[in-house]
Amino acid sequence: MDKLRILLVDDDEDDRQFFADALEGIELNTDLHQLENGKSCMEYLLTDTDNTPDLVFLDLNMPIMNGFECLEAIRRTPHLKDLLVAIYSTSSAERDIEETFEKGANIYIKKPSSFNELKKSLKQVVKMNWAYHLNDFKKENFLLKI
């Protein structure tokens, strides 16, 4: 079985480390690539279509190009418009959540404050039957506030 290719875009080194450790901890067959902001993400994705991952985790509050701008850029790109994008942010503001869904996010995960919870969330998202869920899209099903 092919590895699930995951791209994490987050400027916070600690969070990237937590994420990588948590992903490793859930012992699934994944391949993680990490980037620090929206600009480097877009450059990476546009360089080669082979770079297109199965799932992108996108932080919102980032320098140079933030998560909102990056999400818009992804959805504007024809070959990326169906890419699965999970927002991975500290913000629990309704306005932010609304805006990301309007801009085309597939799921919203609030960064948890415990490592175990993070593992739980990632497991849930990675193992999610996306084909099934996207056919019956309901926003509340894609809002993981932990």
């Binding site: 937590f18 450790d21 500290t90 913000s91 503001a93 960064k111 948890p112 490592f115």
Partner: peptide, 21 residues
């Protein structure tokens, strides 16, 4: 709100995360 929700919570979350680890 913004300060409280992000700037204050963010370091706290880190503290909690490290404690948890």
């Amino acid at each position: 709100n913004r300060v409280a929700s992000h700037d204050l919570q963010e370091p706290l979350r880190k503290v909690q995360m490290f404690v948890s680890r």
